[in-house]
Structure formats: structure tokens, C-alpha cells
Design a protein around this nucleic acid. Sequence first.
DNA 1: ATCAATATTGACACCGGTTACCAAAATGAC
DNA 2: GTCATTTTGGTAACCGGTGTCAATATTGAT
Lengths: 350, 350
Amino acid sequence: MAAQKKGAGGKQPTINDVAALAGVSKKTVSRVINRSEFLTEKTRKAVEQAIETLGFVPNPQARALAFRRNFLIALLHDNPNAQTVLNFQQGVLDAIKDSDLALLVRPVDRGSERMLDDVRTFLEKQRPIGALLLPPISENDDLAALCEDLGVRYVRVGSAPLDDAKHCVSSNDREVVAEAVRALIALRHRRIGFVRGPQGFRSAAEREKGFMEALSEAGLDLPAAYNAPGNYRYAAGIEAGEALLSLSEPPTAIFCSNDEMAAGVMSVAHAKRIDVPGALSIIGFDDSPTATHIWPALSTVRWPIREMGVRAAKTLVPDFLPLAGKVDESDSGVLNSTFIQRQSVASPQR
Amino acid sequence: MAAQKKGAGGKQPTINDVAALAGVSKKTVSRVINRSEFLTEKTRKAVEQAIETLGFVPNPQARALAFRRNFLIALLHDNPNAQTVLNFQQGVLDAIKDSDLALLVRPVDRGSERMLDDVRTFLEKQRPIGALLLPPISENDDLAALCEDLGVRYVRVGSAPLDDAKHCVSSNDREVVAEAVRALIALRHRRIGFVRGPQGFRSAAEREKGFMEALSEAGLDLPAAYNAPGNYRYAAGIEAGEALLSLSEPPTAIFCSNDEMAAGVMSVAHAKRIDVPGALSIIGFDDSPTATHIWPALSTVRWPIREMGVRAAKTLVPDFLPLAGKVDESDSGVLNSTFIQRQSVASPQR
DNA sequence: ATCAATATTGACACCGGTTACCAAAATGAC
DNA sequence: GTCATTTTGGTAACCGGTGTCAATATTGAT
């Protein structure tokens, strides 16, 4: 049984009750709550004892008022991939679990002209301690400037460093994409197609760089016909698949900038009775649920989104989190993505 | 350009500033803010003028403290399906967009023994106006009782009415599953398999009821070997598929209690070179992204999760929302799910 | 042991609203 | 014109914490 709590009628004990019971002043209790350093072990113990006995929980509203800041972290996102958002959320929640913080979620409408004003109003009203910016909106410099301006801490999440390490958590997507493509080359693929991500997205650019890097290392080049546009949507994968697989000399492997588009390409292959992976290898990116739900299971790149959530939270509010696992100051804030081999890749048939 | 806001340095005006400028007391300003009726038109005008001039916005933290309640809605969930959670979130956000409310998200660990205590602490701390309970955790009566006990409004979301209409929003899953299965029967399927959801879940029970209803209407029965256990996971779909499709007389159609398991069954079919939908029709449930990403695209049932989010919010805090689109009191709170036909269903081959 | 220096603790105002309650002004009846 | 009744405005307390800075307790040096 956990702490004995009072029923519906019973009022929450306040800091005054705790102070009275412990025989100290309000302020001292406040110090204990806020982990002030200037406290005798004895006093601290006494207060903690009283807190325990009463089942006291500091009232966040009162703290927020006095502190002029809510004990909240805002998660700003416009990512269409639900699993990504939720995994990240989960990571953040892992990190703040034993703290006093709570998580406020705020989808942002990138398209809207009023976006910045909306976010400003939101931040002014809610006054969170900090904001976490998920890609692709994390790439918006105005947003970061806005946070700065409003005195809201922020951390941007990206596929490559977007800011200094204090304000950014990222993964090494480029390297890992290159690694994945090298794996194709090692399997003796020479005709390798590419399905791009949307224009102007940093994530898409990084993936493309990684792809091109691996290709040029091997002395291969990318014929224009093998380079298909995309926008991270399934439908774009279908189109790209139709285009690439209708060529007189189609690629034997296709790297898609995300899993959804890979699923689209795979559907086209199935429809055209092209054997995967026998006649066509496919690689995606994200390791979304889709990657394992389609058949054959998709080789893909997993970015450590949940870990990034943990890291982002730790970077954002190190001083509010339980002492365990502080982020090393000298850390670059770059986490490792991983290439995951599944059944959609094999050597090309002769 | 929206409202002219002061820069980083400029402080927010307070109710005192407004009072001073308007030449009245704090209380009078407060009355204007809260639309008290006992005011001279002249006074009201003066105050509103001052508010306008200063660009005054009441501080939510201070109001929360005085009200003893935060202007927040908590979303409690333990749903493994990210898309579902996010769609629901989106619906809630649609509903509260022009209000003073914000959304707090809180995943809940159903397995944990401390779950109830955790939630209690959370609610006591955050003091949201209300809580939204997503399935399957919405089925937990203790949780509803806890909200009641703490004076937190709540609305439970379910696949069938779980509570009175003031506390519940649901969909008519049973009927629509029956409709889907009737469609199979109309296509002359007679050997129809079923992959169950997890034990003890209301959603699973409703889907099963709908399935059995349609079967018995048609005078068909479900052989034990056609009734496979499942837990909503892809792996369970694989197992079920292996079992059902290895039978000497396998079903010609399989209804799976969710899309993930349907994807599993479909993978087994592909691996066994069983043509879908030619030799095997498959239906899922949820209309998750997976449903469209797999090949062939999955016929499935979509529950109106986003609309349910809107509805749930309106039911929870009608008095805090913009006047538009109030929920009709007499409404039962039941929304319609839809059967979606895609390519995974056809008449059985002779 | 004494005194300065430093570590702890407490008193009190304040964060920005709301509510309770009282006083003043306005209205109306006689 | 006087008194009771209804409006309206003001004051002070309060919601439950935190900041400032002075007061007190400890510690170390001499």
C-alpha cells in the first residue's frame, strides 16, 4: 500500500501544515522541496518525514504563480508520423517521470501563416519551462528565436546538428544511410534507385547525402531516371515505384527516404509480380510499425527517437530532473541511428 | 499582423494596471473579466477600454490558483496504437482550439500495480478540469471512481457505452463488424475464420459479438479450429495465420480483430503463396496506417476516433468551449464506425 | 574562550488573480 | 425628506507557494 491518502472531503495538506508538523518555517519546507543546498541533514530529514506523513504534494499552480513559470514541458510538433511523435513523447516522459514536470502537447500547423503568433500566444499563456521542437518544425529558426525571445528554453531535434549542443539533439542519419547503401553495394547491387524526401527538409537532405556518399565511394553514379521525387507519403512511393520499375533497365535495389514510401514501392513490386527481395531489394527509413507489418519485412534505418526524447528532456531541464543520468556537458548531443536488416534485401539475381 | 506584443523585456500588464488606468478597483476589473451582471454600462466600457489599451491578458496561473483548478484537460491513455492516440488528441485539440484550455498528455502503465496511485498523484498535482480516458484504460471502473472522488470530471471512450451519456463517448463497433462480416457472407464465403482480441477487453468482446451475430444470422457456425486467439499484436497475427492456413480445410476469409493481426495473417498468406484476395479474404479493424501500407490494401473498420475526440471534449467541458457546436443533451454519445472496402476482400475461388 | 566568518533558518512581502464581506451610492416607497 | 432596499465599488484576506534579506546557529581561527 502506498501513502495513506485522505478521501474526497479531506483537503490537501499545504506547505503550512508541513511546516507546522516539522516545526520549521514555510520557507524551509520550500527549500526542501526545491532541493536547496543550504540545509542540515537533520532539518531535511524532519521535513521529509513530515511530508511523508501528511502525503503532501506541492501545489503546482501556486508554484507556477510564484515562479512565474509553469512546471511544464511543451512538445511542439508537426510530424505526420504518429509513432515517431509518440515514441518521442514516451522518451520525454521516461526522463521526467520522477520529476515535478508534466508534458504539454501541442501540434503546430506548419502551413498556417499565424503559426508563429499561435505558438507565441500558447507559450505566453502556458509559460512552460521549456519547449521541445520535433522535426520538421525544429528546422524553423524563427521558432527557436521566438522561444529565446520569450525566455522559454528550447531544444531542437533533428537529423543533424541544427544548433549548438545546448539546444539540439540529433542523430547520425547520414552515416547510417551510407552504411545501409554500402551493404547493398557489398551484395553486388550496382543499379540502385533512390526515392527522395520532400524538398527543403533537413532530414531528407541528410538521407540524400548519405546515399550519394556511399554511391560515389563505390564509384557508382545515380542516373536521373533512378532518382525519384517523394514527399514521405505512401502515394509518392507508389508513383516512384511505378516510375522506377517500368524502366527498361530497372534498378535491382531501391533506397527510399522513409518506410511509407518503401511500402509504396513494395506494393508496386507485388502488383507487378516482381519478387522481393529476389528481384528487387528495398530499404526504408524510420523503422516505423509499417516496416515490420509489410511483407517481406523491411530493412530500414531506425533513429533512436525514444532515446532522443530522453536526451532532449535532459538537455532541456537538467536542473529539474532526478540526479540520475545527467547529460555529460561535453556530449555532442548526437545519438546513433542503426541499420536494421530484415527480409527485403538480398543479392540481385543474375 | 496580430496583436501588437511587447518585446522580451516588457512585462505583462496585470489586473492592477488595468484598474489604475480605468480608475476602478481590482474587483471591478475582475467582474468585467468574469462577466458579472452587476455593472454600470459606463464602468464596463471604461474597463474594457483599459484592457484593450494595455493588451491585458489574465494570468492563467493566478486564476488557476484562485480557482483551485487548472485550465487543462488531461488525456490518459495506455493504447499501444500511436495513430489512434494521436488522432484522438487531434480531435480534442480541434474542440478546445479557441478556448482557454490546454491539453496534458499522460500515458498510463496499465500493468503497474501503482497505476491508480500514479494517476491519483498526477491528478492531484495537475488538477485538470477534466480527464479523458482512452480505451482500454477507459474500461477500468476504479479509474472513473477515482476521478469522481477527486472531483475531476471525466469522459470514458469505448467501443460500447461504458457509463451514462454524460461520461461516455463510444462507437457502434459491434454493428459495423457484423456489417463487414455480412459482406463476406454476401460474397458467398462460408468458411470464415476469426482472430480474437485479448481477453478481458471490451473492444475485443464487442468485435467478437458483432462477428458471431453476423455468423448466426446466416446460420453459420464457428468451428473451434477457426477461432484463433490473439492479443492485437502482429506476432499473434502470424501465429493465427499459421494455424488457420495450415488446416486441411482452411477458411476462405478471416476476420481479424485489428489491423496489425490482419497484417500478420496477410504475411503468412504471402509466405505460403496464398493469393489475397483470390484465395483468401482478410478484414481488419482500426483503419490504422498499416491497413493502407500493406499489399493488398486491407478492408477494415474505421472508428471515428478524431470525431470522438471532439465529442469527448465537448462532453467533458461544454461550459469552457466556444458556443459553437454544443453537444445536444439528449445525444446518446454513440458515433458511427464505418466499414471500409479495400482490396483484401473478394469472392472465394471455386 | 572569543570573535569573525560562514552556514542555516525564519519573517514578511509578493506572485496575480478571486472571494467574502462591508460601505457607499442610488433607487424607491411612504 | 426619511428610511429601507438594491446596486455597485472597495478593502482585506486568501489561494499556496517563492524571493529577499535579516537573524541565528555553527564552525574555525586566534
